[in-house]
Design a protein around this nucleic acid. Structure first.
Length: 566
DNA sequence: AGTTTCGGCGCC
DNA sequence: AAAGGGCGCCGAAACT
């Protein structure tokens, strides 16, 4: 009996399981059982289940009330390992990995499933090629060896384990759902937008604002059509090349105020209005379908419902069940703290070793107390700001925190030159040169092309606001990647630790947004959860970055309504 | 008629 | 004041 077992569907609809030994190879006979829940229930001492895909397997376990302690997601690990090996874009399915191992033709990955309101997953899962358990184990064992060939095997093993844990968390969050009051949501919509008119047209407030805009221009103008608005401004003698808010807000014209207000409310109406409520909220829960590691940087995405873009005003509708609370926890200045941890800059580590406001400390040291300037400088360094006050501020930052700035500068240089860039744990941002242009662009990576000022963008530019060369864009991307991605590494460890604590309680993780987590729990568990978050943050910091003075404090709030946090 | 891209803005 | 990273979503516009 070992504590690590593999699980794979059998061709006839049953399930095969088998114990694994050192090196990840089979350590006993392959057993057949009727369904995965039975298998897991029957082996309570197993601490890690190795399977092809968490998204495929785990929801069915959860549906029968079965949770697992840990898992290893072979296809997710394959993606991370391929990335680390500079083979980003190669098919990542277990079937493809097996084919590469055996030297056969490599099948392409099945197409991505599209979002469908209210769909409860596995029904729509694209049919992946069946991989028998013995073959899956072969892939797994080979992956264990591939970990050893990475730059930092321990970190890479931590990364694949952490992301597998993240996938368990995501599946559990998807099952739990975010407590959502449709009644409060409707009240907020009515307060902001007014009555709805029959026929599904604009609500009252939007219609009024559209009238105000039209009156100001002296003719009928549709405020939701940028082309129409640009033309209307032109006729009023004002040249504007877009209708972005920061551009039109500075214009002195009576249409500006109602126009800006219209755009704000229009956004709420179309993205989080009545039809969103209809589509995405069922039985008092919003289920945004979290997908761990959905982006190249490792940040999560949600598949449908705009789950990570809930507008502040709409958060009023997130309400705990009676007698329960929401523990809302927000990491304080996560990105600069991560930069301190990965760059080992002595000054920044010292500042990040305190729990107090990091931007204030930075500004005390380098910006004579101007916190806003300090924050701008730090974010400018992380994002690769190219103009404005950012450059001046960057110089001050560089003087005080040279290693920190050098770290992101080096990442940017590597990106520009098409070299590999990795997060602290080893998630790899592919150089476009390592893949074909098509696959790179599909993956959201700017294609490797020589700089040339007279070159026109081929078609759709990788980022909006084409303003510099592709190499520079790749540099900014890589610069940000090491920080944002390492922060995502850390966040996975945080979630895994927090999940373990919550496992013994009624508390459930219900929301996660980059550096913010919400736990839904009975009131009497709230203080325990608050402490658990603090402990999890400490543990995640130690596990992820090793010995470091950097602290990762959270601001936590115990509330009945999300909008009341912070 | 169906699919892809664009513009704009929500979140971090 | 201005424009640098990552996403998803929507309707309209631009295509096949």
């Amino acid at each position: 009996m070992t504590d690590r077992w593999a699980l794979a569907p059998a061709e006839d609809g049953g399930v095969e399981i088998a114990p694994l030994g050192p090196g990840g190879v089979l350590a006993g006979p392959v057993l057949r059982v009727a369904d995965p829940a039975e298998a897991v229930r029957g082996l309570p001492d197993v601490t890690r289940w190795v399977w092809r895909s968490t998204a495929e397997t785990y929801p069915r376990l959860l549906a029968t009330g079965v949770r697992v302690e840990r898992c290893y997601d072979v296809e997710d690990a394959e993606t991370l390992l391929l990335g680390h090996e500079g083979r980003y874009g190669e098919p990542r399915s277990a079937a493809a990995a097996l084919a590469r191992l055996r030297g056969g033709p490599v099948p392409p990955d099945p197409p991505q499933r599209s979002a469908e309101p209210g769909s409860q997953s596995p029904l729509f899962e694209p049919q992946a090629a069946h991989v028998p358990l013995a073959d899956l184990v072969e892939v797994y064992a080979e992956q264990q060896r591939r970990h050893d060939s990475t730059a930092h095997p321990d970190r890479m093993r931590l990364l694949t384990a952490a992301e597998s844990a993240g996938m368990l968390v995501a599946a559990e969050m998807n099952r739990a759902g975010l407590p959502w009051s449709a009644e409060v949501h409707r009240r907020v919509l009515h307060d902001l937008l007014g009555e709805r008119y029959a026929g599904g047209g604009e609500p009252r407030r939007l219609a009024e604002l559209a009238d105000e805009v039209s009156d100001a221009f002296g003719r009928r103008v549709r405020p939701d059509l940028p082309a129409d608005v640009i033309k209307a401004f032109a006729q009023a003698g004002i040249k504007v090349k877009s209708t972005r808010r920061w551009e039109i807000e500075s214009i002195d014209h009576p249409a500006v105020k109602p126009l800006v207000e219209y755009k704000k409310l229009y956004r709420i109406w179309v993205a989080h209005g009545w039809s969103w409520l209809q589509d995405w909220v069922r039985d008092g829960r919003f289920r945004p379908e979290f997908l761990a590691g959905g982006t190249v940087t490792g940040r999560w995405v949600t598949n449908g419902g705009g789950g990570l873009q809930i507008p502040k005003v709409i958060r009023r509708a997130v309400v705990a069940d009676p007698g329960w609370r929401l523990v809302v926890a927000d990491a304080d200045q996560m990105e600069p703290r991560v930069l301190a941890a990965i760059s080992r800059d002595p000054g920044l580590m010292e500042v990040a070793g305190r729990e107090s406001d990091l931007y204030q400390s930075v500004s005390d040291r380098a910006f004579s107390g101007d916190r806003a300037q300090a924050k701008l400088a730090v974010l400018g360094a992380v994002y690769g700001q190219t103009s404005g006050d950012g450059l001046k501020n960057l110089a001050a930052l560089r003087r005080r925190f040279p290693k920190a700035v050098a770290y992101v500068d080096e990442a940017a240089r590597a990106g520009e030159e098409g070299r590999l860039v990795r997060t602290w744990l080893g998630r790899t941002c592919p150089p476009a040169a390592g893949a074909t242009e098509d696959t790179a662009e599909e993956a959201g990576i700017p294609a490797a092309e020589e700089d040339s000022d007279d070159r026109q963008p081929a078609r759709s530019e990788w980022t909006p606001g084409y303003a510099s060369t592709n190499a520079r864009a790749r540099g900014r991307f890589a610069r940000n990647f090491v920080v944002q991605g390492s922060a995502a590494d850390w966040a996975l460890l945080l979630l895994a630790a927090l999940r373990r604590t919550c496992a013994g309680m009624a508390a459930e993780l219900v929301f996660f947004q980059h550096d913010e987590v919400i736990v839904h729990c009975p009131e009497e568990e709230a203080e325990t959860v608050v402490a658990a978050i603090r402990d999890a943050a400490d543990l995640a910091g130690r596990l992820t970055f090793g010995q470091t003075p950097v602290r990762f404090p959270f601001t936590t709030a115990v509330v009945e309504c999300y909008a009341d946090a912070k």
